[in-house]
Amino acid sequence: MKTNRRIIHIDMDCFYAAVEMREHPQFAHRPLAVGGASGRGVLTTCNYPARAYGVRSAMPVFKARELCPQLIILPVRFELYRAASKKVREIFTRYTDLIEPLSLDEAYLDVSHLRRPGAEIAAEIRATILAETGLTASAGIGPNKLIAKVASDWNKPNGQCIVAPSKVDLFMRELPVRRIWGVGPKSATRLSENGIETCAQLQLKDKTWLAQEFGSFGLELYKLCRGIDERPVQANRIRKSLSNERTFSKNLESLEACQQALIRQHDEMIEDLRQSAPDRKIAKLLVKLKFSDFRRTTAEMPGQKPDLKHYQQLLREAWGRSGEPVRLLGIGVRFAESEGSSEQLELAL
């Protein structure tokens, strides 16, 4: 792969839980999670001691307590996490203006214009974050966003991985298909049933076969398994929408499970609206689902108030189109066009 691009993906380690451990050092080495405290609630995230018991984000509280009875569960404190995120992003600006935040705890940085090695820059950024916030971050460095994001998960927590352009082919060939973004347990099982465990094996399949097996996602897989990603790091975009999306490590098997996840994501989105777009007029409300068979559907309605009841209505509508287990849930708003603007609004779910 010939390219001069150097992209860093920074991913904070168990961010909400890490911030709470910083605030409560007595819990630093104990299993800790952030999320709903009731038995019907779900977890937003958890620390690594909790993960050792099998506890995961988006897991119902009752299940987490069955796996880890001594689990400490703290309520979500958005103001605290946003303050930490703001500090981290300020550190990013010392190195580049080409920053594309993905969420409070991760972002892409394009450092192609800097003469220093990408790995050196990433290590310095991570050290600065630790020194100034007390939080650890992991990083992936690669020639595009896909490679950087996969690499950032390679040496977690508090580590980094670099994939040079000349090493992309080898890196992708040896990469397990389950490590590709978008490949969940069911698709990994389907690939395995066809004798496909690595990207090298997936590369032997043509577009026709992939499309037949996975629909439109199969065409994405054709490029992803080869490490192809030409998307630029998009900084300072005019926000046309705001959304909150989760891909679950374990599919949500029922409408009730989706409703529980919806409550958590709605709370986060409302806080994001209050912080980042308090004066923007809302035109539409949307819910997006991706099912276990990779089919997608979006339900939407006109409206200016992002009330939970409206999203619950949209969720029931979207769920009713399939009833299959859900691997991704997204909710969002489309902002009204500014006066005099004819641009079409798109929801970046």
Rank of each mutant, 00 (worst) to 15 (best):
residue 132 E to W: 01
residue 239 R to Q: 13
residue 243 S to Y: 00
residue 304 Q to H: 12
residue 62 F to W: 14
residue 202 L to W: 01
residue 206 D to L: 06
residue 21 M to S: 12
residue 297 T to A: 10
residue 80 L to Q: 13
residue 111 V to F: 06
residue 188 A to S: 13
residue 44 T to K: 09
residue 117 P to K: 07
residue 280 R to P: 02
residue 287 V to M: 05
residue 161 C to N: 09
residue 57 S to N: 03
residue 206 D to Q: 04
residue 32 L to N: 06
residue 345 L to F: 09
residue 175 L to A: 03
residue 312 Q to E: 15
residue 211 A to C: 09
residue 340 G to P: 05
residue 223 K to D: 15
residue 60 P to H: 09
residue 122 A to R: 04
residue 335 F to K: 03
residue 271 E to S: 13
residue 309 K to G: 06
residue 78 F to M: 15
residue 5 R to V: 00
residue 186 K to N: 12
residue 69 P to N: 07
residue 92 F to N: 07
residue 166 S to V: 12
residue 227 G to H: 08
residue 164 A to D: 12
residue 221 L to K: 00
residue 230 E to F: 11
residue 22 R to I: 01
residue 221 L to M: 12
residue 31 P to R: 08
residue 76 V to I: 11
residue 167 K to Y: 11
residue 330 G to I: 00
residue 162 I to M: 14
residue 213 E to N: 14
residue 56 R to V: 01
residue 56 R to L: 10
residue 18 A to S: 15
residue 226 R to P: 01
residue 192 S to C: 11
residue 107 A to S: 12
residue 228 I to C: 03
residue 313 Q to K: 15
residue 329 L to W: 06
residue 240 K to C: 05
residue 224 L to E: 08
residue 187 S to V: 13
residue 8 I to F: 05
residue 333 V to L: 03
residue 339 E to C: 11
residue 129 I to D: 04
residue 35 G to C: 01
residue 206 D to M: 02
residue 137 A to H: 03
residue 294 F to N: 11
residue 15 F to A: 06
residue 73 I to R: 06
residue 349 L to M: 15
residue 335 F to W: 04
residue 287 V to P: 03
residue 53 Y to W: 13
residue 33 A to K: 04
residue 205 K to R: 15
residue 174 E to H: 13
residue 88 V to P: 02
residue 177 V to F: 02
residue 61 V to Y: 10
residue 147 I to N: 07
residue 68 C to R: 08
residue 4 N to K: 12
residue 136 T to G: 10
residue 17 A to R: 03
residue 83 A to S: 14
residue 319 W to S: 03
residue 33 A to S: 04
residue 138 S to E: 07
residue 6 R to N: 10
residue 303 G to S: 06
residue 287 V to L: 05
residue 276 S to W: 12
residue 153 D to F: 00
residue 246 R to E: 15
residue 215 G to K: 07
residue 297 T to C: 13
residue 265 Q to N: 14
residue 286 L to D: 09
residue 233 V to K: 10
residue 298 T to D: 02
residue 83 A to G: 07
residue 349 L to N: 10
residue 296 R to K: 15
residue 105 D to V: 01
residue 180 I to W: 08
residue 60 P to G: 08
residue 217 F to C: 06
residue 205 K to M: 14
residue 235 A to S: 14
residue 313 Q to H: 14
residue 225 C to A: 06
residue 65 R to M: 10
residue 268 E to H: 12
residue 196 I to M: 03
residue 311 Y to Q: 02
residue 315 L to T: 01
residue 136 T to C: 11
residue 99 I to A: 08
residue 21 M to D: 10
residue 180 I to F: 09
residue 270 I to C: 15
residue 18 A to H: 06
residue 349 L to G: 02
residue 16 Y to N: 08
residue 198 T to M: 05
residue 131 A to N: 09
residue 132 E to M: 07
residue 168 V to A: 05
residue 273 L to R: 01
residue 20 E to H: 05
residue 199 C to L: 06
residue 163 V to W: 05
residue 1 M to H: 13
residue 260 Q to M: 11
residue 192 S to T: 10
residue 126 R to T: 02
residue 194 N to T: 02
residue 164 A to F: 12
residue 318 A to G: 08
residue 23 E to D: 15
residue 134 G to I: 02
residue 231 R to N: 11
residue 331 I to Y: 04
residue 231 R to W: 08
residue 95 Y to G: 05
